[in-house]
């Protein structure tokens, strides 16, 4: 195994927690989930919430090259040099799970060009319920679903819902309009996930992305401890 092993030169193997110079690298958090559930909006909100206190960058994995990266640029949540789009050959799940080399390269290049980073958010383009990140790429992953996709998604499970370090149920403000039962979703999620945390959020609400941002801060505190 090469975890925690020191290597010559800049291209460390996989999940090494240290940069070649021995310093601890940035925490990497993956955000995945089905199409249209608000992953990019959550990333944008996280950037706004955290950019004052942290040095952060974003890598997007899209079906089409730069869609999500463009959204983030348009929203001006980060300077352009802190946002990198990885091409995925129409297969975002391959890029984040089966062959993570392009993503690792993107993360390393960001650390090289914009200096030491505290946090890198790796977003996966809209995929399906089976999309999860490789542990060689991210240290923790967030799975984003929404109430509009049906309140039976937590019950159905799948690797994203079941194993993600944080499950985010987004767009709670829409629940009354689409007839989704938040209580039931919470109970089903608990049944599927045991003690793993779940956050219900509406980015339009007053709290916005606060709970997810707090969870990120806690992970970062544990990472740098």
């Amino acid at each position: 195994m090469h975890l925690g092993h020191h290597h010559d030169g800049p291209a460390a193997v996989s999940a090494d927690a240290h940069r070649p110079d021995g310093t601890r690298r940035a925490l990497r958090i993956g955000l995945g989930g089905p199409v249209g559930t608000g992953k990019t909006a959550t990333v944008a909100a996280l950037c706004r919430a955290l950019r004052q206190e942290l040095s952060l960058a974003v890598v997007t994995n899209d079906i089409y090259t730069r869609e999500d990266a463009r959204f983030l640029l348009r929203e001006a949540v980060l300077p352009p040099e802190r946002i990198t789009a990885v091409e995925t050959g129409a297969c975002p799940h391959t890029a984040i799970r089966d062959d993570i080399s392009a993503n690792l390269e993107a993360v390393e290049d960001l650390e090289d060009t914009v200096g030491p980073l505290d946090l890198v958010l790796v977003e996966s383009g809209g995929d399906n319920l089976t999309a999860t990140f490789s542990r060689g790429l991210v240290d923790a992953q967030v799975f984003v679903i929404d109430v509009a996709g049906g309140d039976d998604i937590p019950r159905k499970g799948g690797p994203g819902v079941t194993t993600a370090d944080l499950l985010v149920v987004n767009k709670t403000d829409l629940a009354p309009h689409v007839g989704s039962d938040l209580e039931r979703m919470a109970a089903d999620a608990r049944a599927q996930r045991g003690d793993l945390p779940v956050v219900f959020q509406s980015l339009r609400g007053e709290a916005g992305v606060r709970d997810v941002a707090d969870w990120v801060r806690a992970r970062l505190a544990a990472w740098t401890a």
Binding site: T88, G89, T94, D99, S101
Partner: peptide, 11 residues
């Protein structure tokens, strides 16, 4: 083809 060296993203 599954050797993880990035080829899948290139045509």
């Amino acid at each position: 083809g599954r050797f993880p060296a990035g080829g899948y993203a290139h045509s």
